[in-house]
Design a protein around this nucleic acid. Structure first.
Lengths: 198, 198
DNA sequence: TTGACATCATACAGACCGGTATGTTTTAGA
DNA sequence: TCTAAAACATACCGGTCTGTATGATGTCAA
């Protein structure tokens, strides 16, 4: 018999909490938040309802945790790509266009979780909206850093435009043919850089 | 006493049907489709539930009608702008950037109904998704016509990029400061045109 | 006047929603 | 081994959801 040790996961949270959050994230992303009831999350994660409500006081809290998790994942990827090009802002931007284009082009890509969830909860003060808006502004901020490294005339406007094409790519997947997104994004980014002095 | 004539509206549908659809459209757009129950639509439109279900067999049918209505409205505006610039493709594109930018910048703008509703209903064969994807492809098609008039090297790619920035603007309103969107869009469009031979 | 039909008001069915209450079993650590 | 916390299973609460059933009231045209 194995010891069946219940190791607490490296990152603080409990194992049960992690299982709930992972299951919920998958379901929320795949089917939409409102379409997924807590009972389904409980059943799919093989956990007691009481446990879910111990770790997340409310469904809304679970949704917020979901978005935070997706956020961390997104910026984690971003940072990993970023680090590989710390000396070349243009190459970094190209690399971002590449992984974002690749991600958008996946056959079951369902869009940016932040944007999708914000669309489900229009109330301006809803936690999901706040997370989503923070996410967008963080992207513009990071793009601003790149734009400044590129020494363009108006880095702020360029950053805004780059954020728009990236957000646009997230919601335009029905428009793309296989593999089209990366090249389209990259070419657009270069065009915007070239014109950023006008 | 007035005659209280029950004139059938010019466009075929009955007056009751119109009232229901108008009320539902407002509510769906403002609060999201899933957040609005048929009972609320019934109450707000001052109509019997039976009447709603006579004109729209199902809530889904009502949702589809809502999206179709929004679609017609959108292309109606588009066409009106288009006609004013039938001889100058660049001026037409500028004009589209202007009204779209203006619309996005409104203080209670809640995004593109097609995109928002598609986010609420991920099932690939859901009527709402189909309408939304048709809407997007129609936009790319129209932008393609403009791109061809502009005689650029790769009109198809340019049309895709323009569609992306427009969709991007629809979902990026938290990023924009007041009145920023139009200039940002227009400048980006020009940049993409200028680079479309590369 | 009569008959067909649209609209009204109301109540209900059956499922699902988020959340709580209760009590038992398992696990971890002193 | 004993204790306290955590996870378990299950049942329930009140509310809301889409959709239907029922029957009264109003309207128009033959």
């Amino acid at each position: 018999m194995s010891k069946n040790v219940k190791t607490a996961p490296a990152h603080g949270g409990s194992e049960v909490r992690d299982r709930i959050l992972e299951t919920a994230s998958e379901l929320f992303y795949r089917r939409g938040v409102r379409a997924v009831g807590v009972d389904l999350v409980v059943e799919r994660s093989g956990v007691a309802k009481t446990s879910l409500y111990r770790h997340f006081g409310t469904k809304n809290d679970l949704v917020a945790a979901f978005l935070k998790r997706e956020d961390q994942d997104f910026w984690g990827t971003w940072d990993r790509v970023s680090e590989r090009h710390s000396d070349d802002a243009l190459a970094e931007l190209d690399a971002h266009c590449e992984w974002i284009g690749e991600r958008v082009g996946r056959r079951n890509y369902r869009g940016c979780p932040q944007i999708n969830t914000a669309a489900e909860f229009p109330e301006i003060d809803h936690p999901a909206r706040i997370v989503a808006e923070t996410h967008m502004r963080e992207m513009r901020r990071r793009l601003n850093v790149i734009a400044e490294k590129l020494q363009v005339a108006r880095p702020d406007r360029l950053a805004g435009q780059l954020a728009v094409i990236i957000n646009g790519a997230f919601v335009s997947m029905p428009l793309f043919e296989a593999g089209e997104a990366t090249e389209l994004l990259r070419h657009a980014a270069h065009a915007l850089i070239a014109a950023s002095g006008d």
